[in-house]
Structures are given as C-alpha cells and as structure tokens.
Design a protein around this nucleic acid. Structure first.
Lengths: 134, 134
DNA sequence: AAAACCTTAGCACGAGCGTGTCAAGGTTGA
DNA sequence: TCAACCTTGACACGCTCGTGCTAAGGTTTT
C-alpha cells in the first residue's frame, strides 16, 4: 500500500478519522483507495487537509461553505446565476461594469420617483406595487 | 412614506414578513428605513427579493450559501484564500491553466513550510511521515 | 382614540451540520 | 492465527438554519 491510512493521516493533519470521512463525503478531498478499499492519503491530500483546516479556522467558515464554493466553480449555471444576482446589487457602482452602470444611471430617475434612491440596478419592470404608501 | 411596508413587500414577493427580516439579518437585501424605523422596500429590493427566491429554489441552496458568496466577494482575503485552496486541488492538471500549475509546483515547498507554521503542532513534512505503509 | 400597522426580542421546532462512538464485518502483517 | 487496523452504517447530541408565532411597545390613518 502506498500512502497513509486514515488513522495515520488523521495524526499528521489534526483531523479525526471520522472527520476525514466526513470531509470526503462533503466532496472535498477524496483519497485514493487500495485494492481492498482502504483510503490512502498521499502528500497532496495531507497538504490539502492541513490548509483546509487553516482556512476554516482563520475565517471561521464551515465545510459546507467550502463545499458551496466548490459547487460554485463546478456548476457554471449556479455561478452565473449567483453572479447575476449580485450584479444587481445595491452597492456602490465601483465594481459595476460600465454597461450596467450606464443602465443604472438611466434608470435612476425612475428609481428616485419610486423610492429608494441609491439602491440597485435592475430592470424593475413587473414592479407594479399593490398600493405604494405615498 | 415612500416604498412598500414589510407586509406589502411580503405579499408581492412571496416571502413572509418574518423571512424578510431574516433575509435582512443575513446581510442580503437591506431596505431603507422611514424616520420612525419602518422598513421601506422599493422596486429594486422587490425585484431582488423575487430573483433571490428563484435562485434558492432553482439550485436548492440556502440563504447562508448566498451569504457566503457575498462574503466571498466582499472579503478579498477570504476570496484569495479559497481560490488558493482550490488552485492546489488534486485534480488532473487538465483544467488547470498551465502557468498556474507550474507556479504551484514551484511554490510547493514554500507552501508546505507556511502551512506547517501555523497549523497542527504535529511535525509535518508529508513526504516522510510516520510510517508509510509500504 | 382606536384599528391596523410597524419595531425588536424571544420561544419553539424540525432539518441539517459537525462530531463522537459503537457495531458488524473484511484486511493486513507479525 | 490473532491483534490491530480498515470499511460502512447508525445512534446521539449540541448547534445553526429557516420559519412561525407571541409579547410589549411605537406609528399611521381614519
């Protein structure tokens, strides 16, 4: 067998064997298997396990968060959908592409009339409110 | 007052007033407030609330996931840390830009040192561990 | 001033996360 | 062969997420 067994890997990385399996279930770090099905952790996996630990600790995030980040970069549809949602964000136009910014400016008047001045660039059609409390 | 109150906004967007407050707590969509502190939802917010609903439903993700995505794009340190982690992914170098892969190999040693520095007190060079089950 | 809103703060509760531990059974190596 | 490891599966438990509901108290509108 070539590589560390789960218990050995646990010792060098600081994770528990249980968590190593959990991390694998989460889709992050999946070690190779021996013929008999034993998990075999190589240097690369060990390294990744350590940095993963550091990542979680340093930013106080969860495995599921990293899992989501992974999904974000594996699923283009999700990625673009999320990007799109944030693109319409009500934040300062600093990081908004020129084209969007232009549209934002164009719609400004409309938005001001409706209400929220400095908030959000998004085609606000289909916005026929119930009874604008005016 | 200019804008929809929380209940009106709830009706047009399909969220409950409770959830609208929750979404606000999550840091996504924060409506303006009236002088008395009433939440005022404008067209932009309403639109964003609707698309958010669609986003969650379509990809079966949670508010916290979107919250994390937001954190990812607001916190550059987190962003690069996560990027870095995935960049070192044990995937076939197929989908890794040649340049990055090369640099990764070059930095390997340095990364190992760094990681070991602020991590598990256990010793570490992965290539000469406890007892390679060979 | 009373009805109908709004605010924050809290309890409750099922579902999922992060983790340990135990059980039943296969693998490895001395 | 036998101890020591591995595998999957499951129960358990505390914590957070998503959600509703109630309470105590301001605001708006009629």
């Amino acid at each position: 067998m070539d590589g560390l067994t789960i218990q050995q890997a646990a010792q060098t990385t600081g994770w528990s064997p249980r968590m190593l399996r959990y991390v694998e279930d989460a889709g992050l770090i999946e070690p190779l298997r021996s013929a008999a099905g034993y998990r075999l952790y190589g240097p690369a996996e060990l390294q990744r396990l350590r940095t993963l630990r550091a990542l979680l600790a340093e930013f106080d995030i969860g495995l599921t968060d990293v899992g989501f980040a992974q999904r974000l970069r594996r699923d283009p549809a999700l990625r673009t959908a999320v990007d799109h949602w944030f693109a319409a964000a009500p934040r300062r136009p600093e990081n908004v592409p020129a084209a969007d910014w232009l549209r934002w400016e164009q719609d400004k008047h409309q938005r001001l009339l409706n209400a929220n001045a400095h908030l959000a660039p998004l085609d606000a059609h289909s916005t026929k409110p119930i009874k604008e409390t005016a």
